[in-house]
């Protein structure tokens, strides 16, 4: 499959699922238990338990690191954001009043840090087309993506690499906020309502931003091949 295969028309799919509806009560119970456990952890951490806070960190730090790495394109910056986000969370955990989920709260901190980083970088015009690892060397993003279809076909690998670079370039042209919404929706798989909460805006605004970002990306990708 070449890079162009990605743009072929697939068949339609709907999310409605009767099977999953049957399993819903059990899932709901599991979610409630998980949420209750998390609330206990947060309360213990608010009371000063470092172990409880560490447990909270372990739940979310990988997602935060992934988000920061994707948005900054630098392992060093991603580490900085990861550290700063959880330090802030630790410092202001006493202010957490369970008005939203801890997940939303920690993501809000991290997204704000990422947005600040993107805006600073935008203003410095230090856009990096490549991702750097901790030693400052170029990191092959696509090398980390598992590919069960390529069948070690060098031509397809090259197509994928070119496509990936173009997508990265198009993503880099979005505004920080558009980039953030697109990343959270598309790569983090969050719902628009959650994204709105994280960015302290409405679901409708998040939806509009997502639409603008999608439209820009499509146009830019088309232009690159036009």
């Amino acid at each position: 499959m070449s890079a162009a295969d990605a743009f072929r028309l697939p068949s339609i799919a709907l999310p409605a699922s009767r099977a999953s509806a049957k399993a819903a009560p059990a899932q709901t119970l599991a979610d409630e238990a998980s949420r209750a456990a998390e609330i206990m952890l947060i309360r213990e951490a608010q009371a000063g338990s470092r172990a409880a806070f560490d447990a909270l960190v372990r739940q979310y730090d990988q997602a935060i690191l992934r988000l920061a790495l994707r948005l900054t394109g630098s392992e060093q910056d991603a580490q900085d954001i990861h550290q700063e986000a959880f330090l802030k969370a630790y410092r202001y955990l006493g202010n957490f009043r369970f008005e939203c989920s801890f997940y939303t709260w920690i993501y809000r901190i991290a997204t704000n840090l990422c947005l600040d980083h993107l805006r600073r970088r935008k203003s410095r015009r230090e856009e990096q087309a490549v991702v750097l690892d901790g030693r400052g060397e170029e990191l092959d993003l696509l090398g980390n993506v598992s590919d069960d279809r390529s069948g070690a076909n060098p031509a397809r690998e090259l197509d994928r690499k070119v496509l990936g670079e173009k997508i990265q370039e198009a993503l880099g042209r979005l505004t920080p906020r558009e980039r953030m919404v697109f990343e959270l929706k598309h790569y983090q798989g969050l719902k628009l309502r959650a994204i709105g909460e994280m960015l302290q805006t409405t679901e409708e605004t998040a939806k509009n931003t997502l639409f603008r970002a999608t439209r820009k990306l499509r146009l830019q990708l088309a232009e690159m091949h036009g």
Partner: peptide
């Protein structure tokens, strides 16, 4: 639109390596 999202799905981006996670 679908094709566009399919194309993006190819570029899933880097997963933080175990080393990076441990270091962080």
């Amino acid at each position: 639109t679908t094709a566009f999202f399919r194309a993006l799905a190819h570029e899933a981006g880097p997963e933080p390596s175990a080393t990076l996670l441990a270091r962080s």
